[in-house]
Design a protein around this nucleic acid. Structure first.
Lengths: 118, 118
DNA sequence: TCGTAATATGAATATGTGTTCATGTATGTG
DNA sequence: CACATACATGAACACATATTCATATTACGA
């Protein structure tokens, strides 16, 4: 915006600027968006749900979510990059589990929103 | 999954089934995913931030977020469909504001996650 | 060491998403 | 009524994303 005041005159120019200046950094905003994007897919939500209930190997996850093993691996990688799940290896099998205590709180809040508004 | 037990033998078949049966309905999961998807875009996050600070008209939002009016309108429609913002008309100008008390709590939780994990 | 099992990875493809551009609609004003 | 203003909408395009398929990697056992 080119520093001109509010077009609608329902907000004081100084307030307009102060609001603009308090916008979180573009880095913070990108991180936030990336974080939420991870939750924006049903299959990933199912994976997170199952892992919130029990540590599971890739094959079992694939069976539960009804996806191919490869697809599950791809999604688990994304979840790992976002530090939402962690892994433990035992021989050739890899066990995944949740690596974030906030996941369930975030789910709960979202569910409250959905319940109240629909 | 075709009702066969866990492939990895680290989880009892009955537990496997009970976990599977307690998966939220596919409707709930779709709604959740759609909801989070809305937050998965930086421009929408900025719009939500600004609206959390002040009721604003479309033109001012466009100036603040540095988007074209048309793009802002499209995003506002999406936010409206997800009941995150509401509008108030006054002549030809349309004022938008937040329509959800949970938005800021969800932001806060996500920020906590980011702060702890990076 | 050879083969097998479990998982990971890369390329390709299909589908989804955000923006732009052009235009439509509604409201106010001379 | 003609015109301007503020916003909404539809189609098209560019780009991102999820899945699939084929193959690589890693660890184990005979």
């Amino acid at each position: 915006m080119n520093d001109k005041a509010c077009l609608c005159k329902n907000i004081a120019p100084e307030e307009m600027l102060s609001i603009k200046n308090e916008l979180p950094s573009s880095d913070t905003i990108s991180h936030l968006a990336e974080f939420f994007k991870v939750f924006g897919d049903g299959n990933r939500l199912k994976i997170l749900y199952y892992l919130s209930r029990h540590e599971l190997c890739v094959a079992d996850l694939a069976a539960l979510v009804d996806m191919q093993q490869s697809a599950v691996s791809h999604q688990l990688k994304l979840l790992r990059l976002n530090r939402l799940v962690k892994l433990r290896k035992d021989g050739t099998t890899v066990y995944y589990s949740l690596d974030d205590s906030h996941v369930e709180s975030i789910f709960d809040l979202a569910l409250v929103h959905l319940r109240e508004q629909r």
